[in-house]
Simulated scan of single mutants.
Amino acid sequence: MTRENLYVALTRGRQTNMDYVAIDKPESDHAGPHPGDNAEATARSALFGVLQHNGAEQSAHETITSEQNTWANIGQLAAEYETIVAAALHDRWATLIRTSV
């Protein structure tokens, strides 16, 4: 469940809203483990997982801002610079190694 779906479900009651979190375990003779099995799961940890699960898509503005921040990052720019320099100097170093032998 996403946090947006939880919000919708919790805002529909007129008198009261109650949230029941089921964390019951399968029977012991149930075959095979499941990806969601966690022996230490609590209602709080399950609810925390739902709140961390964002299902809403980003708006166009948020997407553009995120991409600009990613590509304007100094670490990203430095990595690109190093790649370009390495490619540009490849032939020079190859020639230098061939002629020095």
Rank of each mutant, 00 (worst) to 15 (best):
T63A: 07
T63L: 08
I64D: 02
T65C: 04
T65E: 13
T65F: 06
T65A: 13
S66A: 15
S66T: 11
N69A: 08
T70K: 15
T70A: 14
T70E: 13
W71L: 14
W71E: 10
W71R: 10
W71I: 09
W71V: 13
A72F: 12
A72P: 08
N73L: 00
N73W: 01
G75R: 11
G75Q: 14
G75S: 13
G75K: 12
L77H: 02
L77A: 13
L77Q: 15
A78Q: 13
A78P: 03
A79F: 12
E80N: 07
Y81S: 11
Y81N: 12
Y81I: 09
E82Q: 12
E82C: 05
T83I: 05
V85D: 02
A86Y: 00
A87H: 03
A88I: 01
A88G: 00
L89G: 05
L89F: 03
L89A: 05
H90T: 09
H90P: 00
R92G: 03
R92E: 10
R92S: 07
R92V: 10
W93G: 02
W93L: 13
W93E: 11
W93I: 07
W93M: 08
W93S: 09
A94F: 04
A94I: 06
A94E: 07
A94N: 09
A94Q: 11
T95K: 13
L96Y: 02
I97C: 01
I97N: 03
T99M: 08
S100E: 01
S100P: 01
S100L: 03
S100N: 07
